[in-house]
């Protein structure tokens, strides 16, 4: 019934204790799939009303801290192959000059030259990836999130060529073999599809903040509705000088940075 790879996944995931044994099936109920409750909104959402956005205060982000990355990747079952070629990542840290290659680079302070910044999908308002996708497998949601429909993706990787931020990863091989500790809160992906940050749409629907925002011990990340002038994120944008990645490309990212 289950092939070897699948068994391997279950074993690695630590689920194997019971799953391998049919006898136990009737005895212990399948409680662990989260019971669904009615979501945070109960009508069909109005397109364009909300635009989710994120503000990252790079000054607060601690050098060497990888907590948000670890939590995000665990929660969303992002595989770790341990090599650059097959790498899949939703959120990661890169040096300042890599994240902002078109920003001022001359005569930077020593501290800024050494600073790492978080990079993730920008959920652009004018997203080149959704324009390039031939099947609308990646598409602009009603709430500004650039979403992936993994059921529809044909794996042509056009969105990867189109994304100016390197935010997209392809499943060059079966991701299930490289998930060390599986999470039950989000499905895995299949070999041959593209994936990326989903702004935690899986958590938003339950009324929760994105995992990275919630996890950050320094509270460096703020998440909220960019269309709501009273939201925390808009207040912060009002009172701080902020930057977007490669604004000259006209993609209108929804992720902002305080440098």
């Amino acid at each position: 019934m289950m092939n070897e790879q699948r068994r391997e996944f279950i074993r690695k995931a630590g689920f194997g204790v019971l799953a391998g044994l049919g006898v136990a099936a009737g005895i212990v109920p399948g409680y662990s799939l989260e019971k669904t409750v009615l979501p945070a909104w109960d009508e069909k959402p109005v397109a364009g009303k909300i635009r989710w956005g994120m503000l990252i205060d790079t000054r607060k982000c601690k050098e060497g801290c990888q907590q948000c990355v670890a939590v995000c990747h665990h929660e969303h079952n992002v595989p770790d192959f341990g090599n650059r070629k097959d790498e899949v990542k939703w959120i990661w840290k890169s040096p300042y000059e890599k994240v902002f290659p078109t920003a001022t680079q001359q005569f930077k302070s020593k501290e800024l030259s050494e600073r790492s910044c978080l990079a993730l999908c920008n959920h652009c308002a004018e997203s080149p990836c959704t324009r390039a996708c031939p099947t609308e497998a990646t598409f602009k949601r009603w709430d500004g999130i650039v979403a992936m429909d993994y059921h529809r993706c044909i794996g042509c990787r056009f969105c990867m060529a189109a994304c100016p931020y390197g935010s997209r990863s392809f499943n060059w091989q079966d991701p299930r073999t490289a998930i060390k500790e599986a999470s039950t809160s989000y499905p895995t992906r299949e070999q041959g599809v593209v994936e990326k940050c989903n702004f935690c749409s899986d958590r938003l629907v339950k009324g929760l903040q994105p995992a990275c925002v919630e996890t950050c011990p320094e509270h460096a990340l703020t998440f909220g509705d960019l269309n709501d002038p009273k939201s925390d994120i808009r207040m912060l944008l009002e009172t701080n000088t902020t930057m977007q990645r490669k604004p000259e490309l006209g993609t209108k990212p929804s992720v902002f940075y305080i440098i």
């Binding site: 409750v37 009324g207 909220g224 709501d228 939201s231």
Partner: peptide
């Protein structure tokens, strides 16, 4: 642990389902 970190908007209106 989530208790002190409410979602900004929209308000949470979760209702348990009848299973």
């Amino acid at each position: 642990s989530h208790a002190g970190n409410p979602m900004p908007a929209p308000p949470l209106k979760t209702v348990a389902i009848d299973s």
